[in-house]
Computed example of a mutant assay.
Amino acid sequence: MKQLYIVRHGETQFNREKKVQGRGVNAPLNQTGQEQARAFFNHYKDEKFNKVYVSSLIRTYQSVESFINQGIPHERLEGLDEISWGNKEGLAFEPDIHSHYLTTLEAWQRGELDQRIDGGESPIEVMERQKLAMKYILSKPDEEKVLICMHGRAIRILVCWMLGYPLQLMESFGHSNLGLYVFNYTGGQLSMVTANDVSHLEGVELI
């Protein structure tokens, strides 16, 4: 059996200011995000992770850096990156931007999964690069327990297809900062045992 601990990165200032933060924004953790990362590490530091995987964006590395500093091997995979929000990257959620965002989400919920923000990615495109990344991760039989740090929308897409659900149901899955999903991989089958658990963050601010 292989276990996958999949966690979202900690809070950034873009999260705090409710700005669009996708693949095109390489923002570091803010102070709250650092506190969340410490709380997560303190809770799970005794888990025997064989490998840590992060996206190419610094906020994921910083969120699990304490595990890496223990000497656990790590690897960056672009396939774990957040979705690209195209020309809305870095902008505040002003009414017209928010309207375009919501319209796109509504299209995805209708099954129009080729829709995207101008210059951005569609959920199908994100899923395809995720599948390559996960195929690589699952191909390592000696890595029985791995820690994967990635992003909110990316996690929604990932959990959906890994459970065999249509992508238009992705809104069913939450993604708190440092929220944890755990999957077991047995005999070629993936099963979810934990969903967006934040109990390790008791006493730490969440938004």
Rank of each mutant, 00 (worst) to 15 (best):
A39G: 09
E202S: 15
L163D: 09
E47A: 11
I137K: 00
E89Q: 05
Y181L: 12
G152S: 08
H98Q: 11
D118S: 15
E106D: 15
A27I: 10
E171R: 10
F183V: 09
Q115D: 09
P28L: 05
A195E: 14
V159Q: 03
L180W: 03
T12E: 03
P73G: 14
E202P: 02
H43W: 01
H151V: 10
E78Y: 01
D46T: 12
D118E: 15
M127N: 06
M127I: 08
P28T: 05
P73V: 07
K45W: 02
M162G: 04
E112N: 10
V20E: 01
T32I: 11
Q189T: 11
M192T: 02
G71W: 06
A92W: 05
F67I: 04
C149I: 00
G119Q: 10
E65M: 13
V7W: 02
P95W: 08
E65V: 14
N50S: 13
L91Y: 08
I83T: 02
M162V: 10
M127Y: 00
H9S: 09
H9E: 01
H9C: 09
V25M: 11
Y5Q: 00
E78T: 10
G79S: 12
I157V: 13
V64M: 07
D197C: 12
E121Y: 06
G120C: 03
V159M: 07
Y61V: 12
D81Y: 10
R16G: 01
I157T: 13
C149K: 04
